[in-house]
Amino acid sequence: MPSRRRARTSATSVFLVLGLAIAGYALHSAGLLPPAQADGAATSGPDATSGPDATSGPDATSDPGPGSTASASAASEPSRASSPDPDATASLRLLATLPVKGKAPATGYDRTAQFGTAWLDVDHNGCDTRNDVLARDLTAVVRQGPCRVMTGTLVSPYTGGSIAFTRGQTTSTEVQIDHVVALENAWRTGAQQLSQTSREALANDPANLFAVDQHSNAQKRSGDAATWLPAAKGFRCTYVGHQVVVKAKYRLWVTPAERDAMIRVLDRC
């Protein structure tokens, strides 16, 4: 008798469990129960690096100038959001992976010898890098032929000021192509170990180039983030983000002061 009673109890338990399972399934299918959430599912998260374009300085033989279409007001400072901007967060993470050490001597630095003449056609599209950047960063562009930019309008990302560009012996230099990571800075922070091909790629990489106003380019020279930042504070996040990406891409390092300056900028984005 006890054995039969235990068997009947076990059978009843099984039917009860099955009944509850079937009822739960029916309620879920009817939308009366909320869906389960996966463990550790993030509601949001920054994208991987974005990107955020070496010695800066005008090219004497052809119109100099780096370019970015972004315009920024020098008077406005970006407000700090309650959560970090995704691009800034990605830049900070990437910055944390860069080696930190002092600058190497500038001995042996030569723009043309180490980084190629200004400007090359490294992407083999038939146009030199300067004309590519002018066409990218200026508006209302008028060309002569498929490449040669003759006129256009630049809003310098470094100041927010507008410049009417006209190609000519005395006017071309008003718009110059700036290397975000100056070539001399690159040379002193690891580019000496790069191949000639890699250095030429760095000097012509669109991510490392902005079309800017002549004054800003001359003022910056080969400065890093610790010694020079754009007057347009709203553009500094983009500017420093590009520096981080370029340094990581070409396996360059940052100095302690440079890293600290980058962190200060990115923390405010």
Rank of each mutant, 00 (worst) to 15 (best):
E258A: 02
G168L: 09
P99W: 05
A257N: 10
P46H: 01
A41I: 15
Y109I: 05
T55A: 03
A182Q: 01
K103E: 14
A203E: 05
E77F: 06
G241A: 02
S222V: 00
D267N: 15
H179W: 08
A38G: 15
V133T: 11
N208E: 02
N185F: 13
L209E: 02
A23T: 15
L92Y: 09
T12G: 08
G161W: 00
L202F: 04
A48P: 07
C127S: 03
A74S: 12
A11V: 13
A42F: 12
A226W: 03
R264P: 08
A225D: 04
T151A: 04
P256S: 07
P52F: 12
T159C: 07
L16Q: 12
L95D: 03
A106G: 09
D121R: 06
V155Q: 14
T139W: 08
E184L: 07
A81L: 10
P35G: 12
N217G: 03
R4G: 13
T129S: 11
P35A: 11
R268C: 01
N208F: 02
G152C: 09
G145V: 05
L92V: 12
A257M: 06
S198V: 07
P2K: 14
T112R: 09
S29N: 14
Q196S: 14
R188K: 12
A42P: 13
P35T: 11
A207Q: 06
P66Y: 11
D53L: 02
S50Q: 13
D63W: 14
P84N: 10
K103A: 15
F235N: 02
G102Q: 10
T69R: 11
K103Y: 10
V245T: 07
L229K: 03
A261F: 10
D85G: 05
F210C: 01
V265K: 01
S198H: 03
V155R: 15
Y250F: 04
Q114V: 05
A140K: 10
G168W: 02
V175R: 09
R143Y: 04
P157R: 06
Q214M: 04
N208D: 09
T117H: 08
M262D: 05
V245F: 09
Q243D: 01
T159M: 06
G108T: 09
P146F: 08
A257H: 07
A257P: 03
A118Y: 15
L229P: 01
K247V: 03
L209T: 00
W253A: 10
L194D: 10
G31R: 13
N125F: 10
I263F: 05
T238P: 00
D260E: 14
G24H: 11
G145A: 04
N204P: 02
D178G: 00
A248D: 13
D260T: 13
A70M: 11
L20F: 15
C147T: 06
T12C: 04
R268T: 13
Y109V: 00
R8S: 15
P66F: 12
A60R: 12
P64R: 12
A186V: 00
L33S: 07
L120M: 08
T189S: 08
G45W: 05
P34R: 13
G57R: 02
K220S: 03
S83L: 14
V100H: 02
G145W: 07
A231R: 11
I177C: 08
N125S: 11
S172I: 07
A232W: 01
A211F: 06
R188S: 07
L134T: 03
R4W: 13
V246I: 04
S62Q: 15
A81K: 11
A11L: 12
S62T: 15
